[in-house]
């Protein structure tokens, strides 16, 4: 193999990739935060006594889980002007798509977690006179959180990787910059390798943090 890896090119283009990296962060963290928060509310709707809430949230969750994310992102970009006459920026469309997709998966994580807590925990707390909301907040969720940590990390990792799909909407995130640079310089090997390394450096700490947390929480109780 006599291919020579162009280190100078990597150094030269790195600042541009870093700009893309920042946009990736701007997509990733908010969509994860909004998505999980919305997912929690959706899970409560899935578990509620109201048939309407249960049905509605089920339809929503299945729509997002059973269609490709790529289509969801593009769809938000093109559908909004037609449906409600508002043109979203590519970034907003991507953020919305990622957040809503995350909420659907997050809802299933929360629902599974809440349902996995034995009925006795609800009864033990209710027998003290605790309100439903207090039981959830003080007794159920703290236990659920511990159980759900691996699933949340998994989701965080997925969303970080999914955010690269925003490049098809010309959101100037890491993947977009990588594709642009590799076609400008005809050096996809150097550029895309660097992009992959940057993604790894972004995602690995999240995985590591969750493993540490899991170990710490397993030691307690």
């Amino acid at each position: 193999m006599d291919y020579s890896f162009d280190v100078a090119l990597v150094v030269e283009t790195f600042p541009i990739l870093m700009r893309g990296f920042l946009v990736t962060l701007e997509l990733w963290l908010p969509s994860l935060g909004i998505g999980l928060a919305a997912g929690f509310l959706l899970a409560l709707a899935r578990l509620s006594r109201s048939r309407l809430l249960r049905g509605g949230s089920l339809v929503y969750i299945e729509l997002f889980r059973d269609t490709p994310v790529l289509i969801q992102l593009i769809w938000f970009y093109y559908a909004f002007p037609i449906l409600i006459g508002v043109q979203l920026s590519p970034f907003a469309a991507a953020l919305l798509g990622l957040a809503l997709n995350t909420s659907a998966y997050g809802a299933e994580i929360f629902r599974g977690g809440i349902q996995s807590i034995a009925r006795g925990q609800w009864e033990g707390a209710k027998a003290l006179g605790m309100r439903h909301a207090d039981v959830l907040r003080r007794i159920i969720l703290p236990q659920v959180f511990k159980l759900m940590l691996p699933a949340f990390t998994n989701r965080a990792v997925e969303v970080a990787k999914m955010s690269s799909l925003a490049s098809v909407l010309s959101v100037h995130e890491l993947m977009y910059q990588g594709r642009l640079l590799s076609s400008t310089y005809y050096r996809p090997f150097e550029i895309l390798t660097t992009v992959a390394v940057v993604y790894f450096v972004l995602i690995y700490p999240a995985t590591f943090l969750s493993m540490t947390l899991e170990r710490r929480m397993a030691g307690k109780g």
Partner: peptide, 26 residues
């Protein structure tokens, strides 16, 4: 008050926190 066959203690709280929970929350 009620005492259950399966105890239903809160596993994420210490013994003291278990006994305090109703007093603090309710």
């Amino acid at each position: 008050g009620m005492v259950f066959q399966q105890f239903n203690l809160f596993p994420h709280m210490t013994v003291l926190e278990n006994a305090m929970e109703g007093l603090v929350t309710v």
